[in-house]
Amino acid sequence: MRKFSEERVAAALSGAGVRFERLPVGPDVSLLVCERGGRVFGPIFDGARGAFWSSPLLNDASALASAAGEWNIGGERFWPAPEIHFNVPDRSRFWETLAVQPAMDPGNWRLSTGADAASVRLETEMRLASYGTEAPLSHIAVERTISAVENPLRNAADFDFLMEEVRYAGYEQLIELRALEPGAPFSAWLLLQLSPPGRAIIPAAGLPELHDYFEPVDDEVCNRFEDGLLIRLTGARRFKVGISSHSLFGRLGFLSDPDAEGRSALVIRNYHNSPSSEYLEEPPALPGVRGHSAFVYNDDGNGGGFAELECAGLPVGGTVGPDSRAESYQAWTFEGTRDRLIPVAKRLLGTVVDRLGTGR
């Protein structure tokens, strides 16, 4: 778990003129949802800690205001995919031409509160250049409704055992996408920035099929098994892998190393995985290689030393998708000692959790 002062960050957002809302998602647990970049920070336990990564900019109002165009502020973000078509004018020169379009991030999000104060809503429109596609422009409408979600283990017969000395908080995003004009296809892309060190835990059907997007991974950090994938995340070595949807069940996990107080966090993304559908993202060096519904990214330290669990939605627009689509994404966070989180992880992520003693 990472220290995070909800009070200090709220003051910085206010001081920088960024509108935000607090959303309770459990006893003494909340989210901060803000208009800048449409970010979700949390869950924040006791106003003081969380598993997510956040930029030092969030501790200082003047620094945050002066970096108004900076996208890398942490938390969870929504971007439209595929990145290779929206953020990269020349895929043969990926790093030299990679640039986030301002309409995407920080964008122009509008924040409102639900009538019952139990949800918040983020809305925006994006006009985005699309590179190397059948249409040069995508005009996208996005509506995101965020609310607390029940503990996925609440009906388990051994619930009391599983939750002994464990705290839970979770939230759901209902995301509605619309293509406002004919254009290039797109999809939802949800990215959770997390605080390493820790392990990504990804259950799979058989030996998972994956592709490198950037620098290749090896068995020093990535271990493949017949029941899933374990990836060591440090925030000190850059890599990204895409995992084929036919290998996956729609859940991705992250178990942080214990902090100074012996506490860890288990973060699980639950999403709809559909191998029969088209997933649009492609590795820069492999045009036409598609089908990845999940990704794991590890920063090299130059971006702040974070890691990411990422998942993609189904296509909208173009010739491969309908003109609109609604999808649900859930994020479950459990907090406790590592020995108490392991049974929870095994129940929700399967037998690959037994292999946590394997590899590095």
Rank of each mutant, 00 (worst) to 15 (best):
M163T: 08
P203Q: 09
A205R: 15
L122W: 04
A141N: 10
Q173W: 03
V149I: 13
P182A: 00
R167Q: 10
Q173C: 00
M163F: 13
V166N: 01
A188K: 08
A141W: 09
Y131F: 14
R167E: 10
V221P: 04
A135S: 12
T133K: 02
E215A: 13
L210N: 02
I175W: 01
L137H: 08
A179W: 04
P197C: 04
D158L: 07
L162P: 01
V217N: 06
G170F: 05
L174H: 06
P152E: 00
L122D: 00
G132W: 01
D212Y: 14
L162C: 03
Y131K: 00
A135E: 14
L153F: 03
A148M: 06
G206N: 13
R167N: 12
M163Y: 05
M163K: 05
L194M: 11
Y168M: 11
R127C: 09
E165I: 11
N223Y: 10
D218M: 04
E220P: 00
Y171H: 11
I146D: 00
I146F: 01
E176R: 15
S138N: 02
R167V: 05
E181M: 04
I201A: 10
R167L: 06
R127Q: 15
S119E: 06
L177P: 02
A169P: 04
P136H: 11
P136F: 13
L177A: 06
D158P: 02
V149P: 05
A200I: 08
T133V: 01
L192P: 05
E125W: 08
F159H: 06
S138K: 07
A204H: 00
A179E: 10
E181G: 02
L153H: 09
L128T: 09
P197D: 02
I175T: 11
C222A: 15
R167G: 12
S187G: 10
P196D: 00
R224Y: 08
A141Q: 15
P197G: 12
V120D: 08
G170Y: 02
D158F: 01
E134S: 15
L192F: 14
R167T: 07
I201N: 10
T145H: 01
E220H: 05
L180M: 12
A148Y: 05
T133A: 09
A141I: 07
P203W: 10
V120C: 07
E181F: 07
R154W: 08
L122Y: 02
Y131I: 06
L190V: 14
E150W: 09
L190S: 02
F161C: 08
I175L: 09
Y131M: 08
D219K: 12
I146L: 11
G170C: 07
R178K: 14
E165P: 13
Y168V: 01
E181P: 07
P208V: 03
L180Y: 08
F214G: 04
V120Q: 00
E164N: 13
Y213G: 03
R154N: 07
I140G: 02
E125L: 01
A148S: 10
